[in-house]
Design a protein around this nucleic acid. Structure first.
Length: 822
RNA sequence: GCGCGCAUGGCGGAAUUGGUAGACGCACUAGACUUAGGAUCUAGCGAGCGAUCGUGGGGGUUCGAGUCCCUUUGCGCGCACCA
């Protein structure tokens, strides 16, 4: 028996689709739009199974929505700036541009072999000057709005990538791309004021109902909003006031010391001329050489040094010693913390190490806690003690009262802090969008004139992999004239973090070839938001928060119509094999090329969609792939066998007997199931299993005595239609075999008939005390009372009940009758 | 440490609102066709001879729990000195 010739079939239809521009999309106000987007790839050159899964999911949704009558935007492009291209240049001497463009060509070929319904005319590549011109333009708009600024700061520095990193790109103290331990460096860098948007980024999360909770929680934690108070402490012997941030102002009477971050600029003023000066300097020096991993490796064990200075507690008037310690972070709050050892574990550890007093000020009324001999900090709620006039007050009430008091006294205020930091966007690398800023000795930093954009990446550069950006080696790039005063000036040589490029590409897709604007307002108004976004959960914080920030900032600039870019988000699960993530080092990688070559794209897509729901892990199984391949062959044979009966049969059918009835039932049930699963629930695995059931049913039906050709035609054609979003090539071929001249993609999605789903008879279960005893068929539509009477009147039922007393009868029509006996 | 998620046959998974647990597929077993089959078709396939027992363990709510509540174990993921 022959296999279907997937090689020729897939090539044939891919060619046809391309020639007919089948997937070309234009704005059409008369139709409801649907924007389905998969996260665009970095063009590494090789497609992996994660990509295949991502794009298969997106393609089913896109094809389904199209057939369901929507005007579908389904684009694809490349996030094509980034380090690998530059590393290839350093290692092999190839131009980053050449390397990238050839990879993109290769990946496009691979993507096209998958039969994805992309409108390639809208494709973007972020490294194209016609794209990064608008990236630069957006940067300038942000700059003019005050959202971009340059500042010298200690920054995260990856020694291996030889560049700075954003906070979000540092994972466990290591570079998220290469894994090197990240150090600190003092550099002058460009930042985006994402912290201005912290509250909106947080609050809007509640409205993103189509987002997985997990992602929203991750973003929420990353933004890390905490409400508290800033309180001023006088420094003894110095004309200075130190402000601390605390969320537990209710514990202020228990403050027994003050701690300040080693990097804090005020430390110098504290120690100047004291006898502790040398010791403190040595400690600061030591701390400055530690990276984040070393600093956090000592959680629990606290280090620090006394500065020789004291602060005055504004409530008790007591003098408390000031210490320098590296458990206080310079970047959070004010970099100075009031130490309340009785109620904060870190302060407790510190007090124990330095033998500082521990004064409990909140009594939790817990017999397990001995306030006079605390074993650990007590964080529980309770009533205040040792707190003067506040004694006896509930501590949560006290927080409110104390903030009021502090504000009245003018020694502090209510304050909110975020873990979120401003976004460091400069990168000391070549292969990225040049930051379109110019430094003039007279005018300072000024943006390049918009009519001079794009600021082109120079090509006369050397790649050494060391020191500052390779752009510095260009003889043509740096020297320019000031756009304001016309005097000689120098260009910024850093490039932008590539996460900027990917923060607005979904807007460019709406109007990808616009040479006069980043995107046209009306086109963006028509297409946005993205109705369904699909990608890996690894972007939960980085990309998804940056893109939200961009959209909000662009909204504030009046350039887009919505505040949030992505209405619904689907985070697909990983593809694993033998219980482990596919990776070269484990050697369990399955190459998409190989699978598509051996079984075809339809089989690959079908398997990936059938093996697991999209948001879960997918366990790769070679035998499972063969099963999917067998199924497609089985469908293909079925069409071949019924072809002669079906072609020319009538377009409408009548139900003539029980065989007809059961086929019609199965057909409608399948349409319903696939419509629900492909249209909103996205459980493609159950959609496919339902199609498999229909195929099994048609196989049975074609052996019955009286074949109803018109019904069989409806069944087989509907089956092919609902299968076509999953495996488009074979469905096109079968559709053609059945005598249709036009693409199945242009067909309307079938509608199911609710009436056909009503059965004459239903199976009900008879339970005794909730245990299933018997199953039998009864007429459909019986009322509760009728069902109960019917069941209770049977001899079999009486036998089941026996001589026990019937306590209660629960009858659920269409489901069961439960007889409770004693 | 804090937060989130998951746990169902030999395996991937179904059960959408509390109502017949195991759909669909893989693997396996037997048979048919065949020179042969790793093709195809037919039948079987949670455990137990059986009554029955079965959704990680224990408890609860309910006529009825994979599904709801409490508790516990294991695994996975995220954050982690954020005052």
């Amino acid at each position: 028996m022959a296999y279907y010739d997937f090689k020729n079939i897939e090539a044939k239809w891919q060619k046809k689709w391309e020639e007919e521009h089948l997937f070309k999309t234009t704005e059409d106000a008369s139709k409801e739009k649907y924007y389905v987007l998969e996260m665009f790839p970095y063009p590494s050159g090789k497609l992996h199974m994660g990509h295949v899964r991502n794009y298969s999911i997106g393609d089913v949704i896109a094809r389904y929505k199209h057939m369901a009558g929507y005007n579908v935007l389904h684009p694809m492009g490349y996030d094509s700036f980034g380090l690998p291209a530059e590393n290839a240049a350093i290692k092999h001497g190839v131009e980053p541009a050449d390397w990238t463009w050839s990879n993109m060509a290769e990946m496009t070929t691979q993507l096209k072999r998958m039969g994805l319904s992309y409108d390639w005319d809208r494709s973007v590549a972020t490294c194209h000057p016609k794209y990064y011109k608008w990236m630069q333009w957006i940067f300038i708009q942000f700059y003019k709005k005050g959202l971009a600024y340059k500042k010298e700061n200690p920054v995260n520095w990856c020694p291996s990538c030889a560049t700075v990193l954003a906070n979000e790109q540092v994972v466990d103290g290591c570079c998220e791309r290469c894994g090197s331990v990240v150090g600190k460096k003092n550099l002058s860098q460009w930042y985006f004021k994402i912290t201005d948007y912290a509250d909106r980024l947080l609050e809007n999360l509640d409205e993103l109902e189509g987002w997985p909770n997990k992602v929203k929680i991750m973003q929420k934690n990353w933004i890390g909003r905490s409400v508290g108070a800033e309180v001023q402490f006088k420094v003894k012997d110095l004309d200075k006031i130190f402000t601390v941030f605390t969320t537990r102002v209710d514990t202020i009477f228990g403050t027994t010391f003050m701690v300040i971050a080693p990097e804090h600029p005020e430390v110098e003023n504290l120690i100047k001329g004291t006898k502790e000066e040398a010791v403190v300097r040595a400690y600061i020096e030591e701390a400055s050489h530690k990276n984040d991993i070393e600093r956090s490796s000592t959680v629990g064990e606290k280090t620090g040094v006394f500065t020789g200075r004291y602060a005055v507690n504004p409530f008790t008037g007591k003098e408390i010693p000031i210490y320098v310690t590296d458990y206080v972070l310079m970047g959070y709050g004010t970099g100075i913390v009031m130490g309340v050892p009785a109620h904060d574990q870190r302060d407790f550890d510190f007090a124990k190490t330095f033998d500082l007093p521990i004064i409990p000020v909140v009594d939790p009324h817990d017999p397990e806690v001995d306030l006079n001999d605390l074993k650990a900090a007590c964080k529980a709620e309770g009533t205040l003690i040792n707190s003067g006039e506040f004694d006896g007050m509930n501590n949560l009430v006290a927080i409110e009262k104390l903030i009021e008091l502090v504000e009245k006294k003018g020694i502090g205020k209510k304050a909110v802090n975020y873990k979120l930091r401003d976004w460091l966007i400069s990168r000391q690398r070549y292969w990225g969008t040049p930051i379109p800023m110019i430094y003039c000795e007279h005018c300072g930093w000024v943006p390049e004139k918009e009519e001079n954009l794009p600021v082109m990446l120079p090509t006369d550069v050397e790649f050494t992999g060391k020191g500052e950006s390779p752009i510095a080696t260009s003889k043509t790039f740096v020297d320019t004239v000031c756009p304001v005063c016309g005097k000689p000036a120098k260009r910024e040589i850093d490039t932008m973090d590539t996460f900027l490029d990917s923060s607005w590409y979904f807007l460019r897709y709406c109007d990808a070839r616009n040479e006069g604007e980043a995107f046209n307002y009306d086109k963006v108004k028509y297409w946005m938001n993205v109705d369904q976004y699909i990608g890996g959960v690894e972007h939960a914080i980085l990309h998804l928060m940056y893109a939200r920030f961009f959209q909000m900032a662009l909204y504030d600039l009046g350039l887009v119509t919505t505040e949030e870019p992505f209405k619904n988000l689907l985070t697909q699960g990983m593809v694993i094999k033998d219980g482990k993530k596919m990776s070269k080092s484990i050697g369990n990688v399955v190459s998409p090329d190989e699978i598509i070559g051996k079984y075809g794209a339809d089989t690959a897509r079908l398997f990936i969609l059938f093996a697991a729901p999209p948001d879960r892990e997918l366990d790769w199984s070679d035998t499972g792939v063969e099963g999917s391949y067998r199924f497609l062959n089985r469908v293909y044979r079925l069409v071949d066998e019924v072809k002669d009966t079906v072609i020319g049969a009538a377009d409408s059918y009548e139900i003539k007997n029980s065989d007809d009835k059961s086929l019609a039932f199965e057909m409608n049930a399948t349409i319903k199931k696939v419509t629900e699963d492909a249209g909103g629930r996205f459980n493609f695995n159950t959609a496919i299993s339902s199609i498999m059931e229909l195929v099994n049913e048609i196989y049975r039906y074609k052996e019955v005595k009286e074949i109803n050709a018109a019904l069989l035609k409806a069944a087989i054609e509907n089956m092919i239609k609902v299968l076509s979003p999953f495996t488009p090539h074979i469905c096109e071929e079968m559709w053609e075999e059945l005598g249709h001249g036009d693409s199945i993609y242009k067909e309307k999605w079938p509608v199911f008939d609710e009436k056909a789903l009503v059965k004459d008879e239903v199976e009900v279960v008879i339970q005794i005390n909730g245990k299933v005893k018997e199953k039998l068929n009864v007429p459909n539509g019986l009322s509760k009372g009728d069902l109960e009477a019917l069941i209770m009147g049977r001899d079999n039922t009486k036998q089941l009940v026996g001589d026990k007393a019937v306590v209660k009868i629960i009858a659920v029509p269409g489901k069961l009758v439960n007889i409770v006996v004693k």
